[in-house]
Amino acid sequence: MTVKDVKMNRRWGMAIDLDKCTGCGQCSLACNQENNMPIFEDDSDIPKRVSFMELMKVTNDRDAKFPDVKTAFIPKMCQMCEGNDPKNPNPPCVSVCPVVATDVGDDGVVSQIWSRCIGCRYCQTACPYEARVFNWWKPVYEGTFKKSLNPEVSVASRGTIVKCTFCSHIWKRERDRAVAEGKLNINDVTYKTACQSACPNNAIIFGDLNDPESEVAKLSKSKRALRLANAIDLESPEKQKEMRKVKHFSNPKVYYLTSQKWLKDMLNFRKN
């Protein structure tokens, strides 16, 4: 088998079941630990905090009284936008980067290389989901905490943008393992992200969207599925084609599943 024949057919995506999510925060914790996130004195200071995955708490109405009040938790990370054409992905953050620090991989994952980043924060502005975070300070680890860092993820320096990359270092590790076992086709490599492994309710499901047999591909076509603030999803297919000609849509690869109408409306910025 020559390398020319082997092409990456994967298109990694994620489905998050908001009906199952209890807001325990295990995913966020696992993500921070896996990706060597720095610890600051006050982590409730959201604009200064460095965290790939944010657990947002939303309610239907701020002034609602007991029987009517409804709450949901939304784990929000990089949504891995692919633009209008999945075969030629063009996320909003990639086109604005002046130094090619962020790029779309063959598997559709938007990568971010901090050593190339110059800290202009254009991508942070361009991101429709505020999924990118800026390292305002040098990461500090107290005491012996430095010994427990993940050796596979490099610690980003001050003045660079970091973001979720669907734990691409785990994919590299699994690729090594597959080669050691004798599987030479790159499409045999499968892996689990840290947040998926940590979720006690199996609310987070990660997999290949191109494979119609996979759980993610099935869930993404279900009626409960919707994408965060992607207005094009609500229209009919003919209207979608017209809209794509006119405007550039982000089309994220992270699907949220919910059966509650108020939450669906809220995620699409519609009024109740």
Partner: peptide, 8 residues
């Protein structure tokens, strides 16, 4: 030659 093939 994509970035994420070698970098993380």
């Amino acid at each position: 030659n994509k970035c994420a093939v070698c970098h993380d």
